[in-house]
């Protein structure tokens, strides 16, 4: 008689006891996490806490894409990478750290710079995609792929002392990236972390918020950040929640009909 493979390894379940104790997650929610498949683009500042918390949370399949190698200036904030891995591919370093945190999740590292074709192939079938990249062209490319596939895109971004986080999901009523930010600003207006600097704990804050939001999206717990953009200014202690909406004339998602209400 054929038997289906058990969801958890024999020694695995006790590590999720504190999730299972939560009314909003429980056994069914933990099962959803175990069966979930997420794509994390970027294994840098934001990717570090995202990957570590999602692996610890027991998200069954994690694919991580990054073409960079570990350098000394990463270690001030990219806590998934260690001193003895300088020069190593970030995805390989991430695989090592995650295997040490939770050997029961499957992590696939892809050391490449995301292109449009890769994005389409990698996004297909994911439960949720997390944008932890460091440039707007890749963010827009990933947005286009997620809109086409109808996959929620959980997006976070940081600069200096501030972060932004929201869920782009036009298939479920929320705007896409191009609805909210249709134009890419000039390079000198929106400098990257290398030029502008970034406070070390900031990606820990925004990346951990993204990990929490991913756990909510996968389990259905609480109220998601669809249609809500969080602006967080750690330097001045300012936080704002902005209600955001789809644009009818959005070049990326205008043809998509909303088939599920936004929650």
């Amino acid at each position: 008689m054929p038997t289906s493979k058990p969801l958890y390894a024999p020694d695995e379940l006790p590590r999720y006891a504190r999730h299972i104790a939560l009314r909003e997650i429980g056994g069914p929610g933990q099962g959803r996490l175990k069966r979930a498949s997420v794509l994390v683009v970027g294994a840098g500042g934001l990717g570090a806490p995202i990957l570590m918390y999602l692996a610890a949370a027991g998200v069954g399949q994690i694919t991580v894409v990054d073409d960079d190698t570990v350098s000394l200036s990463n270690l001030q904030r990219q806590v998934i990478h260690h001193q003895d891995r300088l020069g190593m591919a970030k995805v390989t370093s991430a695989e090592i750290t995650l295997a040490g945190i939770n050997p029961f999740v499957q992590v696939t590292g892809i050391a490449t710079r995301l292109g449009a074709e890769d994005a389409r192939a990698l996004v297909a079938g994911q439960t949720v995609v997390l944008d932890a990249t460091d440039n707007l062209p890749t963010r827009h490319l990933l947005n286009t792929a997620c809109v086409a596939a109808g996959v929620p895109l959980l997006s976070g971004a940081i600069s200096q002392w501030e972060g932004q986080i929201t869920v782009y999901d036009p298939a479920r009523g929320a705007p896409c990236l191009a609805c909210l930010f249709p134009t890419i600003p000039a390079d000198d207006l929106a400098p990257d972390c290398a030029r502008a600097g970034v406070m070390g704990a900031l990606p820990g804050i925004i990346g951990s918020m993204m990990a929490a939001e991913a756990i909510k999206l996968i389990t259905g717990a609480g109220r998601s950040l669809r249609g809500r953009l969080i602006l967080q200014d750690v330097l001045w202690g300012e936080t704002r929640e902005i209600a955001v909406h789809r644009r009818r004339d959005c070049p990326v998602c205008h043809s998509l009909k909303e088939d599920t209400p936004c929650n």
Binding site: D134, R139, A157, Q164, L180
Partner: peptide
Amino acid sequence: LSCFDAPLAGVAEVAFFPPMTGG
């Protein structure tokens, strides 16, 4: 979220923000 040609009548708070790039 609004736009630059929107009226300000009755508005108490105006927030300006750009897209961020870093990760």
